[in-house]
């Protein structure tokens, strides 16, 4: 059972836990939109230490506006985006965007 569906706005936890994680620092604390749900995969933070990775975690592709990520400090065009694959334990529901899309 997945918690999020395509189109949902989600925020990435602004967390810096020790150990092995697969959530890039540059996206932590930001809000994006779920593009797709890939299924559930063993937890990489547990697999990294030789454990079974159970229970598995839902994995989503989440897309972010470049402007939300870099606030102009980059080399991209107005509508450009960056998407990453993020496990459900890093995501929280966020209000629908009130920005124009």
């Amino acid at each position: 059972m997945s918690r999020f569906a395509p189109g949902d706005r989600v925020s990435v936890a602004k967390a810096f836990p020790p150990g092995h994680v697969r959530t890039p620092t540059f996206l932590r604390g930001l809000t994006g939109t779920v593009v797709r749900h890939f299924g559930a995969f063993p937890n990489p933070s547990l697999l990294a230490y030789g454990m079974s990775g159970q229970p598995p975690l839902n994995l989503y592709q989440v897309v972010f506006d470049m402007d939300d990520v870099w606030d102009g400090d980059g080399e991209y065009a107005a509508g450009d985006t960056v998407a990453a694959d993020i496990y459900e334990n890093w995501l929280e529901a966020a209000p629908q965007s009130n920005r124009k899309d």
Binding site: H20, P44, S45, L47, A48, Y49, G50
Partner: peptide, 12 residues
Amino acid sequence: FWGSDENRRTIE
């Protein structure tokens, strides 16, 4: 013997 995440953890 190990998986990609153990390899990544070791490189980190």
